[in-house]
Every structure is written in structure tokens, then in C-alpha cells.
């Protein structure tokens, strides 16, 4: 299975999907008008990955901004990870937020309350 590396733009995040070490990274800004198109290949990759996953999957989400359209796609990604966890794989979501960004911390907590996967809230201090 191939890894995916997408560079970030002013409206879309940097994405790294690595099947070798089971590390998934989403970083930067996610504010496209229509996020379905952007996230489709990521969701498809996760479906494929779930067939033969790494023993441990680590997800690092470090977003500066995301819009409501992306919030739905991010939930879809997390739901895929929840299925992975249900199938008795180890899954961990690290949710990074900048110091004082309470809205971003709250968003992470919202996901944590919906998705049955362990979350770690990590504050980034300048």
C-alpha cells in the first residue's frame, strides 16, 4: 500500500498518510468551500488501510483553522478510525491546539465526546 503526501495550501492542510508506521498527519488550515473533494482520497486511503492496518495507528491533527465544511470530513475520518479501533487495533488521536486557542481545544473535546477512540489534547506553547 502506498503512502500519501499532500502539500498544504492557504486553504487546505498538509496531509501525510504512512502505512509503514501507521502515522497519519493533518496539519495547517482546512478552509475550502467544498471540502468533500479534498478529503475523498484520504477517506478512500483509510478504507484500504483498514484491510491490513498497522498494529498501532497514531493520528496527529494540528490545525490552525478549519471551517464547518471540513469539520464534517474530519468527523468522517475519525469514524473510520473508530471502526479500526473496534476491530481491535490500537488507535490514538493527538489533537494539537495553540496556547489560548480555546475554540480549537473545545472542537477537539467535541470530537472526543462523539468518537470512541482515545484522544490526547496537546497544547502547543510558543
Amino acid at each position: 500500500m502506498e503512502s500519501i503526501a499532500i502539500e498544504g495550501t492557504t486553504k487546505t492542510p498538509e496531509v501525510r498518510l504512512n502505512p509503514e508506521n501507521g502515522v497519519i498527519e493533518i496539519k495547517g488550515r482546512s478552509i475550502p468551500e467544498n471540502s468533500i473533494e479534498f478529503y475523498r482520497p484520504i477517506i478512500e486511503w483509510l478504507d484500504e488501510y483498514a484491510k491490513n492496518p498497522n498494529k498501532k495507528t497514531t493520528v496527529n491533527v494540528q490545525l490552525e483553522y478549519f471551517n464547518t465544511s471540513s469539520s464534517k470530513c474530519i468527523l468522517d475520518i475519525f469514524k473510520k478510525l473508530e471502526s479500526l479501533k473496534k476491530a481491535r487495533n490500537e488507535v490514538m488521536i493527538n489533537w494539537y491546539y495553540e496556547e489560548d486557542d480555546e475554540d480549537m481545544l473545545e472542537s477537539g473535546e467535541d470530537y472526543e465526546s462523539i468518537i470512541r477512540v482515545p484522544f490526547k489534547m496537546i497544547e502547543i506553547v510558543d
Partner: peptide, 9 residues
């Protein structure tokens, strides 16, 4: 998602 690609949020 709605037809317009939004979520009503």
C-alpha cells in the same frame, strides 16, 4: 452534506 456542499453549521 447538502447539495451545496455545506452542512448547515
Amino acid at each position: 452534506f447538502t447539495k451545496k456542499g455545506g452542512v448547515g453549521l
